[in-house]
Write a protein that binds this DNA or RNA. Structure first.
Lengths: 234, 234
DNA sequence: GTATGTGAAGTAATTCACAGCT
DNA sequence: AGCTGTGAATTACTTCACATAC
């Protein structure tokens, strides 16, 4: 017998399974979504191994997060567990997939077909998780028209048209720093709604656009910090 | 006239410039180091533009962090500003570089010469920030012995020897999930002290090894979440 | 006047601990 | 007996606001 879930404005009962009318719109912290992604990966592996049920503690061991953390994270979205038993692996995986929006395929545009761009294009992990790069743009005339990984390289000028045509919602930016903001502006104008940026610069986007930046060198700099300070050899 | 800095065990005065005996070992939060990296990049750009001095507010505008945040972050490490004036760009950049350990070059080993691995090898951003990939390992016999970007591909079996020989402290793991933990274990045995992992699995390392993971798909999954939920079109 | 450096206040994230269900 | 879901407690992080210095 599920308990009512408290909402922003008022409260209403919610069915046992998640899926309902987004009634769980409490404010979600910045930290939980990346963790859901991790839970999901582990659940997927467990499912393929034939594990049917797992406790928050078990999932904690596999993911590296605390059992309490996992229970709290999930509780933002609903009640997925069986009290006294744990979580049914398949059921929880499906629920999280739905929460993350991974129950559909996303069309993705990639801008920049240099080293990094072409690696991302060939990276199988994106496709596996439902992200399909259906358009690649570059401004290097020698590359335009060539077919890489089954996708034709297009000139940047075709961006707007192609993004509309293919209903692309997500853009990946893998261009040099100097070009990054400009490319992002173009993507926004083309109607894209979320951007993953690999250029190590601060990018500004309108409020309604979601932006994430993956700073490769910055990660190494953090390691460098810890080597020179925290974990310095006596 | 710099104030004494309070330490864990006792306190002692600190010279105007940072640089001293790690006296600033208050506990630094997980969040500040990545920000230092961002400050540094902006300072570098300002310096090359000829800007000599900047306030925390000015730096805040450029980096996207609040002025208070910046001041607090820096205050963990010392006093770098001129009250009433701001921060001398060059001086602050040098200080942060030193804090991050970017005043030396780090030798880096790359494991995995697939798509992602070779893109990382060719990525100029690492070298620019002082990270030099001096060894690349793979287990694909067809690749071994070939020279890429000036670096000879070696068999994984040579790892231990080469890492000692070149005094490599940092390892980058760009192998498939199945192999990742095993590769990390080998790196650790070879005496590496920090690892940047690109495989989307949880990796465990001994306490004294610093590990960071860059999860490419996870970033996209976060975007997917925000598209399906927070920023859903009415 | 101007802007730092920093305690104090305010938020956010995490962990505790346990009532309540199976 | 076992484990979830969740308020309460704790800890971490950020912002405020101002005394202090130039």
């Amino acid at each position: 017998m599920p308990k009512p879930v408290t909402i922003f404005t008022d409260s209403l009962p919610v069915s046992t399974k998640w899926a309902t009318n987004m009634s769980w719109k409490k404010r979600i912290g910045q930290t939980v979504v990346p963790r859901l992604s991790a839970y999901n990966r582990v659940l997927d592996k467990l499912y393929r191994k034939g594990v049917e049920i797992i406790s928050s503690e078990g999932l904690g061991e596999k993911t590296g997060y605390s059992a309490a953390q996992i229970r709290k994270d999930l509780s933002f979205f609903g009640e997925f567990g069986q009290v006294g038993r744990g979580y049914y692996v398949k059921e929880l995986e499906d629920a999280i997939s739905q929460i993350l929006g991974l129950d559909t395929t996303w069309n993705v545009a990639l801008v920049g077909a240099g080293n990094l761009g072409s690696a991302l294009l060939a990276y199988p992990g994106f496709r596996e998780r439902g992200f399909k790069i259906v358009a690649v743009f570059d401004n290097d005339l020698r590359k335009i028209g060539k077919k890489w990984e089954g996708v034709v390289l297009r000139d940047i000028s075709e961006m707007q048209e192609k993004i509309k045509e293919e209903d692309i919602q997500i853009g990946i930016v893998a261009v040099p720093v100097e070009a990054a903001q400009q490319v992002v502006d173009m993507l926004v104008l083309s109607g894209i709604r979320a951007i993953l940026n690999f250029a190590p610069v601060r990018i500004v986007v309108p409020e309604d656009i979601e932006l994430r930046s993956a700073e490769l060198s910055s990660e190494l700099e953090c390691l460098s910090y810890f080597l020179t300070n925290e974990k310095a050899v006596g």
